[in-house]
Design a protein around this nucleic acid. Sequence first.
DNA 1: TTTGCTCTTGGGAGCGCTCCCAAATATCCG
DNA 2: CGGATATTTGGGAGCGCTCCCAAGAGCAAA
Lengths: 341, 341
Amino acid sequence: MTELTLEDIAKRAGVSRSTVSRVVNDSPNVSIDVRKRVLKVIQTTGYQPNIAARSLASQRSNLIGLVLPRSVSSFFTDPFFPHLTQGIAFGCNNNDLTLSLFIVGSKEDEEKIYPRISRRGLLDGVLVQSGQMDDKLTEELIKSSLPTVIIGRPFTSEGVNYIDVDNVRAAKKATEHLIKLGYKRIATITGTPGSSVTEDRLEGYKQALTLSGRMIDENLIAKGEFSENSGYFAMQQLLPQHPDAVFAASDIMASGAMRAIFDAGLRVPGDVAMVGFDDIPLAATTQVKLTTVHQPITRFGVQAVELLQDVITNGCTPARHIILDTELIIRESCGANKPRR
Amino acid sequence: MTELTLEDIAKRAGVSRSTVSRVVNDSPNVSIDVRKRVLKVIQTTGYQPNIAARSLASQRSNLIGLVLPRSVSSFFTDPFFPHLTQGIAFGCNNNDLTLSLFIVGSKEDEEKIYPRISRRGLLDGVLVQSGQMDDKLTEELIKSSLPTVIIGRPFTSEGVNYIDVDNVRAAKKATEHLIKLGYKRIATITGTPGSSVTEDRLEGYKQALTLSGRMIDENLIAKGEFSENSGYFAMQQLLPQHPDAVFAASDIMASGAMRAIFDAGLRVPGDVAMVGFDDIPLAATTQVKLTTVHQPITRFGVQAVELLQDVITNGCTPARHIILDTELIIRESCGANKPRR
DNA sequence: TTTGCTCTTGGGAGCGCTCCCAAATATCCG
DNA sequence: CGGATATTTGGGAGCGCTCCCAAGAGCAAA
């Protein structure tokens, strides 16, 4: 039952291999009753086409890869990535694609994985989570002939397909919100240095301040690295500067920052207001509910898959970019609403 | 350069297709200088064998699947799963396997995904995250001829390969720890009903109490579902019963429970002690650092892959089980150590 | 030199599909 | 009703590899 081939089905249905193939692949030009007959045989036998054979003959595997380079170590600490992965998985489900996951753990992995990814006949294309500078793997992938879509704005965007949210605009909106609420000393906690997300969110923060006629105070900019702890420590550094509001480049860091604020015996938003980024589920359940930038994360994943699909079928010129918009979700931590407690 | 075949390499090296194949696959019986010559051609041309062709000819794809059934919705809210996925990915990297991910989002997905998984020629085997009752997908997979390893104790373990941690023993240890510390009214917050993890952890809790000569008080057992919020609500239910300690079946729920305790104006561990389960990174960074059961999660993933590999190469009889042990990590929330603040 | 062995090498067959072209059949219209 | 055209069907070739068997090479012992 498992070992049936096209030819077997053909024999049982009294038609040729080609006809069965047409039925399986929904090609037109098969008469209605022949199609019915074949379909019935397929149904009763439980025939499944052999994927390896199909891939070989059609030069198409319907497999795409999701590559998480070593620089994306926050896959495990930041809920953003599991959500994104889920979105991508949904995108694959919708497009009859199978998703394979390449998590680069170490330098040795990197060297073993690259050949595996680029082996012909395995993947139709890859999605690369990137936006980190000097990422050798990403660069190799871009240069290769494999259809590639970068998730996150790459540093060299020349001729590269990518999808990203408009981080500059989002950070600007978030910061402007704090400005409008009348905060005077607005600080920021940045993400991991050397990544485009970090740069863009910082840029948006600066633009908002500058546009409102303020100076950028470097003392109000603290470096984090997208982890809870880094948010905590960054906030501890910030506290002596007496900020009255903070824009954190991720919810996880905002949560760490709030912990630091509480530990210092201060209140949110009373003493320090807080705005995060991502809108992960945690944001709605922290002690003081977090005002944050909502990313359309499932849609993000789905669109990434669709973009890749497009590149696979239509070639990669011209390079395509998709920039998604975000939304500011106002909860308690910014002080715009009275906290409920 | 991408389109090279075995035959091309053979021609350039002045040998036959078979010989090149032997070199590529590290078979013995190739003379040293021929091997060197072929290797050199491969190196300079950048030849990569075509995976689809190899799969078709060898009936082996070196692709394994990780299936997350619909019941595992906590993939996105509980950091446990990303970690496990990472462990599995490492296992694959070590064994020259490629991992493909099947996340079932909806009922329709379920029906579309199963055929995709069971298609011949695609996967050599699957890892199924399960331990949920009445999981149709899991049952079908077990019945299929595809080598399958269940992650988590399945309800019908007859003839089924699985890997799990010893949840009963771990929960027992955690509860006994609270007993030893002299707590009198020890409550528990359970996981999602109908899953073996939930049952086993509850069982361990009960065993510990019974062994110490206590009665099981159903009022001290609150149902959660492995999310932060559910821990919060479960704790709110528990609070009127005045427990002096709580064993939560996951760190995320423990964190929610602590939030409820703080909201009620009580302290941890002063008023209520807390022990969690999983030892996710969050556990070490909560306001009051969490005493919890550490799971060897990366090793878990790696061993799951190795078990599957074993089943693939040696067949699935007899069924194999791996049960891993856990470790209790004592921090602040249980009151064994003086909290630092 | 011949025989018998081992080690190395080459080539045929085949994995199960798709794709193309040609043959067979149906359909249309003057 | 015949010829032109459209639709349906069949079969060959080929995708790039592995696996098997047989032929060739090399060598030692008789």
